[in-house]
Amino acid sequence: MKRNKWINVARELMGNKVGIAAVIILFLITLASILAFLSTKNPDQMNALARLQPPSRDHWFGTDDYGRDTFTRALYGGRVSLSVGFLSMIFATVIGVTVGVISGYFGGLIDSLLMRFLDIIMSIPSFLILLLLSVYLKPSVGNIIVIISLLMWMSIARVVRAETMALKEREYVLYAKASGQSTFGIIWKHILPGLLSVVIVSATNNIASAIMMESSLSFLGFGVQTPKATWGSMLNGAQGYIAQAPYMALFPGLLIFLTVLCFNILGDILRIGLEPKLGKR
């Protein structure tokens, strides 16, 4: 069954030209960011004589208001933005799956307490919490990852809880309980494998959400601070030069748009391939 699901994903992907394009674009952006060190330009080197130069053979994306090469900064910024997206997704998924499984499997008072706690936290606008935490915590990549992770796990927990409540009533789980298997063994062997599909889909979509959150914080000046580049901070620096040098905002904005869009497209393909019934709705 598991193999059949991944075969469905492969078929869905191969039959979707937009999906193939999304995978290729994500691969190229990720590879370019990883290999940013191969660039001959220093992302933090300032040159007053090369300020606000338009795209050219020497500076593919032009230069910013400090004369720094925008293309190289975009590559290094991609490292930060993608790292924040992936690491935030991993931490949020671990927390969300843990809370969701505990709440859904044990039910009762534990479930009520955890869900009421989630209701209270989720009733507060996420972006307001982001801003408050970013003000009191030192702006750094590590703190941004922690902040975003602490906000994203709640949506995963709700999905996992609902799926766990359905899985624990399956015959093979009931049989495992009746045969005397330990609670941990049942969760590890029967519940978690059954959650794989929904977790993968949620995780893929959360990468896009994390990148958007980081970019928004950096754009507002509460994220990773200069001279370290992120796509959001590059947009922030371009605000005062939109008319004079629109390319300063165009390229990082385009990278954010493409990355988020491609992850969302990939998430939809995974959802349809792994959960065909959901895809038909």
Rank of each mutant, 00 (worst) to 15 (best):
S134R: 00
E171A: 12
K138T: 15
N236A: 13
G221L: 06
L220I: 05
L195A: 00
M212C: 06
Q181S: 08
G180Y: 12
L235F: 01
V201R: 02
A210C: 10
N143Y: 11
Y175K: 07
V159Y: 02
L130A: 15
S134C: 03
L196Q: 06
W188S: 13
K168D: 10
L220P: 02
T204S: 13
L174G: 03
S149P: 03
I187N: 04
L151W: 03
Q181G: 00
A162H: 01
N236Y: 10
L235N: 06
L151K: 02
I191P: 08
G185A: 09
L128S: 14
L133E: 03
P227K: 04
L196S: 14
R158F: 09
W188F: 15
L132M: 14
T226I: 10
L195M: 00
L217K: 06
S134I: 01
Q225H: 09
M213D: 14
L150H: 08
S149V: 04
K138M: 10
K168Q: 13
M165Q: 14
I129V: 14
T230P: 13
V198G: 05
T226P: 14
F127I: 12
G142A: 11
T204L: 11
K228M: 12
K177R: 15
L131H: 10
A166N: 10
L235P: 01
M234W: 03
